[in-house]
Design a protein around this nucleic acid. Structure first.
Length: 477
RNA sequence: GACCCCAUCGUCUAGCCAGGCCUAGGACACCGGGCUUUCAUCCCGGCAACGCGGGUUCGAAUCCCGCUGGGGUCACCA
């Protein structure tokens, strides 16, 4: 099939942050559309007025943008249609169904319907609306409040070839005459989706597996409306550690939360794509490569869980190889948060970032490791100080201090020469000096190479810190 | 409960549709070793899976049936 016809969509309910599962669905829709050089459009399903908000819409767009999922404007007046603003369209569809006899008015109250379901359950049947109003021919002039239901054929089945799940379907007898329009005239999900997908020219509906059973009902609606249905593809669920559907309530499942923890968007995108989709042994790939390779055949059929260790690993792969400029841009907010104010990317900080990118899995970690550079004075980690700032180290440290005070070229090579000079004088291995100095200048027993670290910190700050370490040793002797 | 779906290392997966190339491959994690001034990177090695039972076949992870386990859906929510 050709490119021109492919249009996919991502229709979030703007009721919070973009959920990681939603992000993956969006990603698949996006990748599929881009792979076929088609269109990827958005729409807000905000018919639940109480829970929807503009703030959430903004959050959704921001998350999508952060991931790099660009979208195309939908056909029609609004680039991103809102269901709440398309009520006339749904109403027209309901009128059409009513006129054609595919739908009927129902005056049963929610309480009555609930009682029917109870009764059915009690009798061991499936809970369903008992179709009391199906043949009552209730007109628009009916004084009692009425809703509109779809008249589902007595028998037959709804079938479709799911592009991921394969041949799928359901017996019509299993379905009940579901509501299309509420008593207040507003449409219910199934109707709105069908009308929208059709009017937006959607060719492929790629959505979560939890919508699988909705598909039968929607297919019936397409039929009643005499519209050609799109192709469907149901993506397996994202599950938690116990195998259940990932709930929105669980911590750390919004895209925003990953962003805040300092994962590069490239890593999150890569990670998400690997959840349920694969292309041979390929593990690390960028958006371009994903688009090039993405097919629905490559999407698995079983649910996947989130392995945070793998995300961390992937994240580090990206942090290690990001272009320097991108690295700075991504790191900035984290460094500034750590510094408590604006940071300037001078030569030393730029160098430090290069040293840190090899040992940081997230930007949050990177900022923590940069703390010794961002703050004065440095705080000695108790454990590290206890182990390395001992009286035994005092003399070498003092020796180094005076040697460094004289050092004219504060460079990696100059520092290395100076340190080896002291080592030779004292007949000590490098480790005996490197660790105490490391703790002295970074406060920690772990840091980038000691020459580089001193070089980045600079002469003045380094000497002050060595003095402080000397004082610490004296105070704790 | 009804309907539908899923099932390969702890995790993500390759292989399954077109049975033999699979004593099941890769990645993460884990364990061991190398490199090394610390941490990390990097390199080498190791542990570890076809849920169970029947078929079909010369031969099954791959095909069929059953079972077990897990999940999804059953609204005037989306």
């Amino acid at each position: 099939m050709w490119a021109m016809g492919i249009v996919t969509r991502f229709p979030p309910s703007p009721t919070g942050d973009l959920h990681i599962g939603g992000a993956r669905t969006a990603l698949f829709n996006w990748a599929f559309a881009r792979h076929h050089e088609g269109q990827f459009v958005l729409r807000f399903e905000d018919t639940d007025r109480a829970r929807s908000s503009r703030a959430s819409e903004a959050a959704m767009l921001e998350a999508l943008d952060w991931l790099g999922l660009g979208f195309d404007p939908a056909p029609g007046p609004d680039p991103i249609p809102r269901q709440s603003e398309r009520l006339e369209h749904y109403r027209a569809a309901v009128e059409k169904l009513l006129a054609a006899g595919h739908a009927y008015r129902c005056i049963c109250t929610p309480e009555e319907v609930e009682a029917m379901r109870e009764r059915a359950r009690a009798e061991g049947r499936n809970p369903a609306y008992d179709r009391s109003c199906r043949n009552r021919s209730i007109g628009a002039d009916e004084p009692r409040p009425w809703c509109v239901r779809l008249r589902i054929p007595e028998d037959g089945q709804a079938r479709w070839i799911d592009l991921i799940a394969g041949p799928s379907g359901q017996e019509l007898a299993e379905l009940d005459d579901f509501v299309l329009a509420r008593t207040d005239g507003t449409p219910v999900y199934h109707l709105a989706v069908v009308v929208d997908d059709h009017e937006m020219g959607i060719s492929h509906v790629i959505r979560g597996r939890e919508h699988m059973t909705s598909t039968s009902r929607q297919l019936l609606l397409y039929q009643a409306l005499e519209l050609e249905p799109p192709r469907f593809a149901h993506v397996p669920l994202l599950v938690d550690a116990s195998g259940r559907k990932l709930s929105k309530r669980q911590a750390s499942v919004s895209v925003q939360s990953y962003r805040e923890r300092g994962f590069p968007p490239e890593a999150v995108l890569n990670f998400l794509a690997r959840l349920g989709w694969g292309s041979g042994d390929l593990e690390v790939f960028d958006a371009r490569e994903l688009v090039r390779r993405f097919t629905l055949e490559g999407v698995g059929r079983s649910p996947a869980g989130i392995d945070e260790d793998k995300l961390l690993w992937l994240s580090q792969q990206y942090i290690k190889s990001l272009p320097a400029e991108t690295l700075r841009r991504y790191a900035r907010p984290f460094l500034e948060r750590e510094a408590g104010g604006p940071v300037e990317f001078d030569a030393a900080l730029v160098r430090l970032l290069e040293l840190l990118r090899e040992r940081s899995r997230t930007f949050e970690e990177m900022a923590q490791r940069a703390r010794f550079y961002l703050h004065d004075p440095v705080e000695f980690e108790p454990k590290a100080a206890r182990k390395h700032l001992k009286p035994a180290a005092r003399e070498v440290l003092a020796d180094l201090r005076s040697t460094l005070a004289e050092l004219s070229n504060w460079t990696d090579a100059g520092l290395e020469a100076a340190i080896h000079e002291v080592l030779a004088r004292r007949e000590l291995p490098l480790g005996k000096l490197a660790q105490p100095v490391r703790v002295a200048v970074t406060g920690s027993a772990a840091s980038p190479g000691i020459f580089e670290t001193l070089c980045v910190l600079g002469s003045a700050r380094s000497l002050v810190r060595i003095d402080a370490a000397l004082a610490y040793i004296d105070a704790h002797a």
